[in-house]
Simulated scan of single mutants.
Amino acid sequence: MRQPESRYRRSGGSPPGCYDTEDNLTDDEQIGLKQILASCPHLEATAGHVASFAEMLAGRLGAQLNSWMSAVSADDLPQLHRFVRGLETDHAAVLNGLTLPYSSGTVERHVNRIKMLKRQMLRVSGFRLASQTNTSQRLTLSKSITESGPEPKSGCR
Rank of each mutant, 00 (worst) to 15 (best):
M1R: 13
Q3L: 09
Q3F: 03
S6E: 07
S6G: 07
R7P: 03
R9H: 12
R10W: 11
S11D: 14
G13E: 04
P16Y: 00
P16D: 08
G17R: 06
Y19T: 14
Y19N: 11
Y19G: 02
Y19D: 05
Y19R: 13
T21R: 12
E22W: 07
D23F: 07
D23W: 05
D23P: 00
D23L: 13
N24H: 10
N24R: 15
N24I: 02
T26D: 14
D27Q: 12
D28F: 06
E29M: 06
E29C: 06
E29W: 04
G32F: 08
Q35F: 05
Q35L: 15
I36S: 12
I36L: 15
C40Y: 04
C40P: 03
P41L: 11
H42M: 09
H42V: 04
E44S: 15
H49N: 04
A51F: 05
A51P: 00
A51H: 02
A51C: 08
M56H: 00
A58W: 05
G59D: 06
R60L: 15
R60W: 13
L61T: 14
Q64Y: 02
L65I: 01
N66H: 02
N66W: 00
N66I: 03
W68N: 05
S70N: 10
S73F: 01
D75R: 09
D75I: 01
L77R: 00
L77G: 05
P78E: 08
H81T: 05
H81V: 05
H81Q: 05
F83A: 12
R85M: 06
G86Q: 03
G86L: 05
L87M: 14
E88I: 04
E88Q: 13
D90C: 05
D90G: 07
D90F: 03
H91D: 01
H91T: 10
H91C: 07
A93S: 13
V94W: 08
L95R: 12
L95F: 10
N96E: 11
N96I: 04
G97W: 04
G97N: 09
P101W: 04
Y102W: 13
S103R: 06
S104Q: 10
S104N: 13
S104K: 02
G105N: 08
G105F: 00
T106E: 15
V107S: 10
E108K: 10
R109P: 00
R109F: 12
H110M: 13
V111K: 10
V111C: 12
V111L: 15
V111A: 14
N112W: 06
I114S: 10
K115T: 13
M116G: 07
M116P: 00
M116F: 09
R119C: 05
Q120A: 09
M121N: 06
M121P: 01
M121Q: 13
R123Q: 15
R123C: 14
S125R: 14
S125K: 12
G126A: 04
G126V: 04
G126E: 00
R128K: 15
R128M: 08
S131E: 09
S131H: 02
S131Y: 05
T133R: 08
T133S: 07
N134G: 09
N134C: 12
N134Y: 08
T135I: 11
T135H: 08
Q137D: 08
R138M: 11
T140A: 13
K143T: 02
S144K: 09
S144T: 00
S144F: 01
I145M: 14
T146P: 01
T146R: 14
E147W: 02
E147G: 09
P150R: 10
P152T: 01
P152C: 03
S154A: 14
C156M: 15
